[in-house]
C-alpha cells in the first residue's frame, strides 16, 4: 500500500530537518520527503509554482508544518491550505517546539489534523518523527484524488 506520493516537511532549521530525515531514514521513508525551508516555499510547492513549476502536480500525502518560519509562518500556511477547496483534504500535522495553549488552540481551530511537540530528547524525537512518518505516509489512507477536483 506504499504510495509514491511525497511527504512535505516544512522546517526552516536545517539541523531539525536533518534530524527529522535521519529519523525517517530509519524507516526508509526519507526519500519521499520534500523539505521546504519556509512557508512561502510550501505554498509554492502546493500550488506548483516558482521552483516547483515543473513538478508533477498532485497533493502530498501529508504536510508537516513548523509553526515559526520565515516569510510565511505555519499558521498562515495552515490557513491557506484549509481555505482552499483543492488543498483542504491534505492532512496537516503541526510539528513544533511550542507547547503554548494559544498555538494549540489556534492550530486546531484552523483545522490541523494533529499537533506534535518536538521532544528535546533525541530518542523521543526520533520515535515521534518516525511514527508520524509511518502513520501518515504509510498507514493512513490519503484522500482520493477525485476529492480535490470534486470539492
Amino acid at each position: 500500500m506504499t504510495t509514491v506520493k511525497p511527504i512535505v516537511l516544512a522546517e526552516d532549521n536545517p539541523r531539525d530537518a536533518e534530524l527529522a530525515l535521519a529519523a525517517m531514514e530509519e524507516h526508509h521513508i526519507a526519500d519521499k520527503v520534500v523539505v521546504c525551508h519556509d512557508g512561502a516555499e510550501v505554498l509554492d510547492y502546493l500550488y506548483c509554482r516558482g521552483p516547483y513549476k515543473s513538478r508533477e502536480c498532485g497533493n502530498p500525502v501529508v504536510v508537516f508544518l513548523d509553526l515559526k518560519m520565515p516569510k510565511v509562518d505555519g499558521i498562515e500556511v495552515l490557513r491557506t491550505i484549509k481555505n482552499d477547496a483543492n488543498l483542504k483534504p491534505i492532512p496537516v500535522v503541526m510539528l513544533t517546539s511550542s507547547r503554548e495553549e494559544r498555538d494549540l488552540a489556534q492550530s486546531y481551530a484552523l483545522g490541523a489534523n494533529a499537533y506534535v511537540v518536538k521532544p528535546v530528547e533525541f530518542q523521543q524525537f526520533i520515535s515521534a518523527v518516525k511514527e508520524l512518518g509511518v502513520f501518515w505516509g504509510v498507514i493512513n489512507e490519503p484522500p482520493p484524488e477525485g476529492t480535490e477536483s470534486a470539492a
Partner: peptide, 17 residues
C-alpha cells in the same frame, strides 16, 4: 519555549547520531 529548545534538541540529536 520555541527557540531555546531547538539547539538543545540539536545537541542531543547530534550527540546521539
Amino acid at each position: 519555549s520555541h527557540d531555546l529548545r531547538a539547539p538543545l534538541r540539536h545537541i542531543d540529536g547530534y550527540a546521539a547520531l
